[in-house]
Computed example of a mutant assay.
Amino acid sequence: MTAYHLAQINIGTLKAPMDAPETAGFAENLERINALADNQPGFVWRLVGEADNATDLKFFDDPMTLLNMSVWTDLESLAAFVYRTDHRDVMRRRAEWFHRMELYMVLWWVPAGHVPTPQEAIARLETLRRLGPSPEAFTFKTPFPPPGEGKAVEPVLDECA
């Protein structure tokens, strides 16, 4: 059993409310993409609110800013979901529904069994924003191995751009 799992957070600020026609494409895909994640090899956990997604949970001053969090067994499992499933097609449309953000995602290692809090995740995003990629907060393009593993990790290129 692996001593560490990979946590991720991504945030986005909607251009219109969740129930607006402008975000219908996002809202219509949410349940399907979450179910796809839940059934992927390597999936461990995701943050959910009342509607089995995290859109009703608010952690920012701007109520239009959404937060998504999940935990995976490893980088490869998360990358396979993000870049090699229907999730990729939905991500390619994110500019339709969300304002452009310079930094919207961060990855970090957590002890297996640890469920990260949104506050912890937001702090990791801020660490990445302040310091750049490090073992504490990194991206697919600049990944770090789990603590105690010295082997280099190959970057995962953003195939959704």
Rank of each mutant, 00 (worst) to 15 (best):
P111K: 13
A112F: 10
P143N: 10
M64E: 06
L128A: 04
K141G: 14
S77P: 15
M105E: 14
R94I: 05
V115N: 07
D86T: 09
W108G: 00
L78A: 06
I122E: 06
L66Y: 10
L66S: 03
W72N: 03
L75M: 03
F140A: 01
M105T: 09
W109C: 07
I122Y: 14
L125G: 15
R100E: 14
A121R: 05
I122C: 04
L78R: 08
A80K: 02
L67V: 08
Q119I: 06
E136I: 09
L131W: 15
R130A: 05
D86L: 08
R88I: 07
A79K: 01
A80P: 08
M69S: 00
M64Q: 11
A95I: 14
R129S: 05
G113K: 12
V115H: 06
T85L: 08
P143H: 07
E154D: 15
D74I: 06
L103V: 15
I122K: 03
V90S: 02
Y104K: 03
G132S: 04
S70I: 13
P116H: 04
V115E: 14
H87M: 08
T139V: 15
L66N: 03
R129A: 04
P143K: 02
P111E: 10
R92H: 09
N68A: 00
F98T: 08
M91E: 10
F98C: 02
T117Q: 00
V82H: 01
E120T: 15
P143D: 12
A79N: 00
Y83M: 09
H114W: 12
F144I: 11
L103R: 05
M69R: 05
L67A: 03
E120V: 11
T85N: 02
L66P: 04
N68C: 03
M69D: 11
E102M: 00
A123I: 06
V110A: 04
F81T: 02
E96Y: 10
R94W: 13
V106E: 14
R124H: 13
A123E: 09
L66I: 11
T73Y: 09
W109S: 07
P147R: 00
S134G: 02
V115Q: 07
E96I: 13
L67I: 10
M91P: 15
F138T: 04
M69I: 14
A79W: 02
V115S: 05
T142L: 11
V71G: 02
P133Q: 01
W72A: 01
E126T: 04
L131V: 14
T65K: 06
M101Q: 03
R130P: 14
T85M: 05
L78V: 01
T142V: 11
E120I: 12
W109H: 10
S70D: 15
Q119N: 12
E149R: 12
T65L: 00
L131T: 09
L75T: 03
P143M: 06
I122S: 00
L78Q: 01
M105F: 11
E126L: 09
R88H: 14
V115T: 10
P147M: 00
A152M: 13
V106S: 10
D89C: 12
Y83G: 11
L103F: 07
T65N: 04
